[in-house]
Amino acid sequence: MMKKKVFALVAAAACVSSFAFATPQTQFEQGQWQLDLGAWNPKAEVDSGDIYGTGGDVSTDTKWNFQGGLGYAFTNRLALQYNYYGLKTDGSNETAGIGTDGDEHEVNLVYSLNKNFAVYAGWNRIKNDLDGANWSDTNNVAQIGLIAKAPLAKNLDFYAKGAVGTKSTALWEAGLGYTIGDNWDISAGYRYLNTKLADGGDVIDGVKLHDDTNITYKGFIAGVSYRFGGGHKEAPAPEPVYTPAPEPAPVVETPAPAPRNDYYFESIHFGFDEDQPLPSEQQKLENFVATAKANPTDTFKLVGNTDSKGTNAYNEGLSQRRVDNVAAYAESKGVPASQMKLEYKGDTDPVATNATAAGRADNRRVDIWQNK
Score class of each variant (00 low, 15 high):
369 W>N: 04
180 I>T: 06
11 A>W: 08
9 L>S: 05
360 R>P: 06
61 D>I: 02
181 G>M: 12
153 A>K: 07
36 D>M: 09
326 V>C: 13
313 A>N: 11
258 A>K: 08
344 Y>R: 01
41 N>L: 11
355 A>N: 13
217 Y>K: 00
301 K>I: 07
351 V>S: 14
300 F>G: 00
1 M>C: 03
351 V>E: 11
274 E>D: 08
63 K>A: 12
221 I>V: 13
50 D>E: 14
90 D>C: 09
353 T>F: 07
39 A>H: 06
360 R>K: 09
155 N>F: 14
202 D>E: 12
180 I>V: 13
22 A>E: 06
156 L>H: 10
30 Q>Y: 03
126 I>F: 09
53 G>D: 10
82 Y>M: 11
346 G>Q: 02
55 G>F: 13
268 I>V: 15
122 G>N: 11
132 G>P: 01
107 V>D: 12
47 D>V: 01
308 S>A: 14
310 G>T: 04
300 F>I: 00
88 K>V: 13
222 A>V: 10
322 R>E: 10
372 K>R: 14
233 K>R: 10
216 T>H: 06
354 N>Y: 07
313 A>R: 09
333 K>T: 05
159 Y>G: 01
129 D>C: 02
22 A>R: 10
67 Q>A: 08
36 D>R: 04
143 Q>L: 06
136 S>R: 02
142 A>F: 07
329 Y>P: 01
26 T>N: 14
42 P>K: 00
307 D>R: 00
128 N>P: 00
145 G>F: 08
171 L>E: 15
100 T>S: 15
66 F>D: 00
160 A>Q: 03
39 A>N: 02
274 E>H: 03
102 G>Q: 05
112 S>E: 10
104 E>A: 13
2 M>D: 00
181 G>F: 15
294 A>K: 06
293 K>H: 09
312 N>H: 03
215 I>R: 02
205 D>T: 02
243 T>K: 12
362 D>K: 15
327 A>F: 12
252 V>L: 13
213 T>K: 02
234 E>R: 00
328 A>C: 05
277 P>K: 01
301 K>L: 14
310 G>P: 04
19 F>W: 09
328 A>G: 14
211 D>N: 10
37 L>I: 12
297 T>I: 02
243 T>H: 15
48 S>P: 03
306 T>N: 11
41 N>P: 01
86 G>F: 12
150 A>I: 05
341 K>H: 05
96 A>G: 06
63 K>H: 13
58 V>A: 11
112 S>V: 07
1 M>V: 03
143 Q>Y: 09
121 A>E: 06
240 P>F: 06
227 R>T: 04
359 G>F: 11
148 A>N: 05
250 P>C: 00
116 N>S: 10
279 P>L: 13
219 G>Q: 02
270 F>P: 01
217 Y>R: 01
338 S>L: 08
22 A>F: 13
326 V>H: 08
53 G>A: 08
280 S>V: 05
89 T>N: 12
215 I>T: 10
84 Y>G: 06
135 W>A: 09
46 V>G: 05
19 F>R: 03
80 L>R: 03
21 F>S: 09
